[in-house]
Amino acid sequence: MTILITGARGKVAQAITDRLHSAGLTVRAASAHPAELTVPDGVEVAELALDRPETFDSALRDVRQVFLYPEPAGIHELVKAAETAGVEHVVLLSSSSVLGPDAENDPLAGHSLQVERALADSDLTCTFLRPDAFASNSLGWAYFIGRSMPVPLAYPDAHIAPIHPEDIADIAVEALTGTSLTGRSVTLTGPDSLTFREQLAVLEDALGRRIPVEHITRAEAEQQMGRHMPAPMVASLLDLWEAANHGPAAIADTTQTLLGRPARTFRQWAHENSAAFPQH
């Protein structure tokens, strides 16, 4: 039995590939650009481009389990190809944003929701993993921290429960190799609710240097963020953070509740990734 890992250049997908391969399982890593993949010796690579259905059959050959990134382009054709190939189970890396109000029209939720619906309408057994904010999202502050500049935030006291990407990988591996998560939809968070200001304080401790915060207006945030992402995405993120400004984030499932082992903390992530915030 082969396990197909799509989006294999992603950090979570790489961690899953490494774990499955180390366990002696047959893994195929797929990407639209397979020549750019770095995989352990013995892991097969395959081309899988969702806008090129002719790549599906080869990538899905002898596959029974799929780890899938949420890309709606070509998803209906991919589902049909998976059913024809005899795939038994798909583990989707979705998003907790699909549970929000008007998720269908929310640019943060739309991609994941379309893929969830395509899978739910299929004959495939599916597990939906819905992580909340990743701890690694704080890498977006690296430019400011590395230059000893204040981190500009419109909602510095917004609460989130960031999840360590390695915890997502552990849960995904359980979903692919065990039965406890088969057919379930699980919302995933880290073990602690932290404001952005509190996360920066944790990074201060990990880096051994002060990280000032600049409280900016929403309009200023829209202007700054709009340089790097579409306006609807910016508005959706700011709405989310504004709503999170009024109390602790809810703690959902973690590796503690699902796997019986402690969840990795944001502090652990910060110390593990301190080199990603170099001073310039």
Rank of each mutant, 00 (worst) to 15 (best):
L124N: 09
V98C: 02
L25E: 14
T195E: 08
E88Y: 02
D170T: 10
A276K: 11
P248A: 14
V27M: 00
A85P: 11
P232G: 10
A161Y: 00
D157G: 08
A82I: 05
R267S: 14
P131A: 12
I75G: 11
V12S: 00
V79D: 05
E220L: 10
E88R: 14
R227D: 12
G100V: 04
D102F: 03
G24S: 11
E104H: 12
A13D: 05
P34F: 00
I251M: 05
V186R: 10
H33S: 12
S236D: 14
V234L: 08
L48Y: 04
H228Q: 11
G140L: 04
A35T: 12
S185V: 15
T255M: 02
Y69D: 07
S31R: 06
E214W: 01
D253G: 00
L181G: 08
R147N: 15
L181N: 08
L68E: 07
A276H: 12
A30C: 12
V151S: 02
A103V: 04
T187P: 04
V43R: 01
V98E: 09
V91L: 07
I211Q: 03
A250E: 14
I251N: 09
V27I: 07
I145K: 00
N105T: 13
T26G: 02
L50E: 08
T26A: 14
T26I: 12
F144H: 05
Q199C: 08
D157R: 03
A30P: 09
I251H: 04
A118D: 11
P162L: 03
R264K: 15
